[in-house]
C-alpha cells in the first residue's frame, strides 16, 4: 500500500515537474561556439571571454567549445552555420563580415537573414593606427600626406577582403582620394602584431586588438571613427571633428543556424542576456571601448540584421566591390 502511495506521489511529482522540464531546454552535448575570424582578433577575444564566463558562472550544463573558422573572410563559418540548419548545439560569434561576405561572394549561397538571431552583445569601434616609430605622422593630415607620398607602397593590414576593415579602408580611399595596398592576415591580433613589427604601415584595428601595444607605447591611434570620443581614448579626435564624414561600427552579435528550436533559442537568449548584464562583461566593454548599452534580441535583432544587410549593400555599391576585394 505504501508502495502504491509512493508511486502515485512520485507520479504526481513527475506530472508537476515535467512541463517545467520540457520548457527548460538545455544543451545535451558540448555547444560549438563558432568564431568567424582568426585567433587573437576582437571577435575571438570576446568569444573566449564569454566562454570562460559561461563556465565561471555555471550557466550551461555542457561546455561551450570555441572554434575558429576564419577562412575566406568568414565564408567558411557562414557556410558551416548554414549547413547546420536545425542544429541546437551550434552558435556563432559574428562581426560585420556576417553582412559583407555573403554580399561580395554571391555564389556562397548563404542568406544571413535566415539565421536565428540570439543577442547583440556589443557595438565595437574602429580607430586608425600607426606604429609609434612613425614620428612624421602625428595627425590625420600628416597621415594622408604620408600615404599619398608612398602611393601603392603604403601597406594597410586587415583581416580579409570583404571584412569590415577592408570596407573601412575602401571608405577612406574614397574620402581622401588615395590608393593603398591592402594585405589580408588571418586575424586582428596578427594584424596588430604586424603593425608593431613594421611589416605594414597602418591598420584600422578595434581597440581591443591594439590596446596592449598602445599601453606599451608601440602603436598610436590617429582618428576614431565614432560619433563622439570614447572614454578610453580621450585625446584622439573623431573623424567627424576633423570634417570627414566616416562613422563606422562593428556589431558583435551571437546567432544560431537557421531553424533552431524556439526552446533552444530561449535558452541561449537568457544565457547571453545574463552574460551581457554581468559586471565582468560591462567592465570589459568599458576598458576596451565597446558600446554595450542595449541587449538587442529576437525580432529587433532580426530587423537590425536586415537593415544592416541593406546598408552594407549600398556601401559596397558606393565604394565598389572591386575596391574591397582588391581585384
Amino acid at each position: 500500500m505504501t508502495f502504491v502511495k509512493t508511486l502515485s506521489v512520485s507520479a504526481l511529482a513527475l506530472a508537476v515537474t515535467a512541463p517545467a522540464a520540457f520548457a527548460e531546454w538545455q544543451p545535451r552535448k558540448p555547444v560549438e561556439f563558432i568564431i568567424m575570424a582568426g585567433t587573437g582578433g576582437g571577435a575571438d577575444q570576446i568569444a573566449r571571454l564569454l566562454q570562460g564566463l559561461i563556465e565561471k558562472k555555471d550557466l550551461s550544463p555542457r561546455p561551450f567549445i570555441p572554434i575558429n573558422k576564419p577562412g575566406g573572410s568568414g565564408a567558411e563559418a557562414l557556410r558551416y552555420l548554414q549547413d547546420k540548419e536545425g542544429d541546437n548545439h551550434t552558435v556563432m560569434m559574428t562581426l560585420n563580415s556576417f553582412y559583407t561576405t555573403p554580399i561580395i561572394q554571391e555564389d556562397l549561397g548563404v542568406d544571413v537573414t535566415t539565421f536565428t538571431p540570439i543577442g547583440l552583445m556589443a557595438m565595437d569601434t574602429f580607430l586608425l593606427w600607426v606604429n609609434t616609430d612613425r614620428e612624421d605622422i602625428t595627425d590625420l593630415d600628416s597621415y594622408v600626406e604620408a600615404v599619398k607620398g608612398a602611393g601603392l607602397d603604403w601597406k594597410v593590414g586587415g583581416t580579409g577582403s570583404g571584412q569590415e576593415d577592408s570596407v573601412l579602408t575602401a571608405m577612406m580611399e574614397a574620402a581622401f582620394d588615395y590608393d593603398v595596398t591592402y594585405i589580408p592576415f588571418p586575424g586582428g591580433g596578427t594584424v596588430a602584431k604586424n603593425l608593431v613589427g613594421n611589416q605594414i604601415d597602418s591598420t584600422v584595428n578595434n581597440p581591443a586588438e591594439q590596446m596592449e601595444f598602445f599601453r606599451a607605447g608601440n602603436s598610436k591611434p590617429l582618428v576614431q571613427f565614432t560619433d563622439v570620443r570614447m572614454p578610453a581614448f580621450p585625446d584622439t579626435p573623431t573623424a567627424k571633428e576633423l570634417g570627414v564624414d566616416i562613422e563606422y561600427y562593428m556589431q558583435r552579435s551571437v546567432n544560431g543556424p537557421p531553424g533552431m528550436d524556439p526552446e533552444a533559442v530561449e535558452f541561449y537568449v537568457n544565457l547571453f542576456g545574463e552574460l551581457f548584464a554581468s559586471q565582468e562583461w560591462q567592465d570589459f566593454c568599458t576598458s576596451d571601448g565597446l558600446t554595450c548599452d542595449n541587449f538587442m534580441k529576437g525580432a529587433d535583432l532580426a530587423s537590425f540584421h536586415s537593415d544592416n544587410v541593406v546598408a552594407h549593400k549600398a556601401l559596397i555599391e558606393q565604394v565598389g566591390a572591386s575596391s574591397i576585394t582588391g581585384e
Binding site: T39, D44, G52
Partner: peptide, 18 residues
Amino acid sequence: LGIPGSPTTAILLGGMII
C-alpha cells in the same frame, strides 16, 4: 604579444583574460 602561437594557447589566452 598577446598572440597565440597555437590553437591551444589561444584557449589559454581566453582563460587569462577571464
